[in-house]
């Protein structure tokens, strides 16, 4: 689970640090609290609500910060260290801020033999990210390589935030990015 994560963690902080971080606003209050309580009914233990609760944090705040980990641990009766252990196991939780538009490109063998590496190059160039895991200077994009997205018959699939896009070629990249300001 480690190699791609290490790349992300090492470089993606580039765009932050120049602005003072805004204070953490709790996620599990008001509507968030109601949603969490609805989750409790779906599982026999509170611990089992951890993955969906972390998704709520990421959706609300864009990433899962230390404060997010602490708040989640508190509402589920878990320790922060335990929650952190789970967060870092799964590659889709961001443990640092990312660009407004987070791009995941599949480069596993089936896509690789159909030209996925050229799609990665085109994305890095056209977003201005320069390297994998880094955020573009304008804070607009972050590009990462991921393993098989389960759409190998439509090479190369990419995810931009929650939009799953099939059959991406280097030629299509500039046009696609237009839609993400």
């Amino acid at each position: 689970m480690s190699s791609h994560k290490a790349v992300e963690a090492g470089t993606a902080g580039a765009a932050v640090g120049t602005h003072p971080a805004p204070a953490y606003a709790p996620v599990f209050v008001g509507a968030g609290k109601t949603k969490l309580e609805a989750l409790f009914a779906k599982y026999p233990t509170k611990q089992a609500c951890l993955l969906p609760a972390l998704w709520m944090v990421q959706e609300a705040r864009g990433w899962v910060s230390e404060e997010g980990i602490h708040e989640t641990a508190q509402v589920l009766g878990l320790t922060p260290a335990y929650v952190k252990g789970v967060v870092t196991f799964y590659t889709m939780y961001h443990t640092h801020p990312v660009g407004r538009h987070f791009i995941q490109v599949c480069t596993t063998s089936p896509c690789n033999i159909c030209g996925a590496e050229d799609v990665v190059k085109a994305l890095l160039q056209n977003t201005g990210c320069g390297e994998l895991g880094a955020t573009s200077p304008d804070g607009r994009f972050t590009v990462t390589e991921v393993e098989c997205l389960g759409a190998c018959g439509f090479p190369t699939p990419i995810l931009i935030n929650d939009d799953f896009i099939e059959n991406v070629t280097p030629e299509r990249v500039p046009g696609l990015l237009q839609g993400y300001k």
Binding site: T45, L51, W55, F89, Y90, T91, M92, V146
Partner: peptide
């Protein structure tokens, strides 16, 4: 029926890893 969303880990396709993942654990 309850839908449970994974979070990026091939190993969670293995049946007992999947059970851990639903229980809120590492997969």
């Amino acid at each position: 029926m309850v839908l449970h969303r994974g979070a990026g880990a091939y190993i969670c396709g293995e049946e007992t890893a999947m059970m851990n993942s639903i229980e809120g654990k590492r997969g």
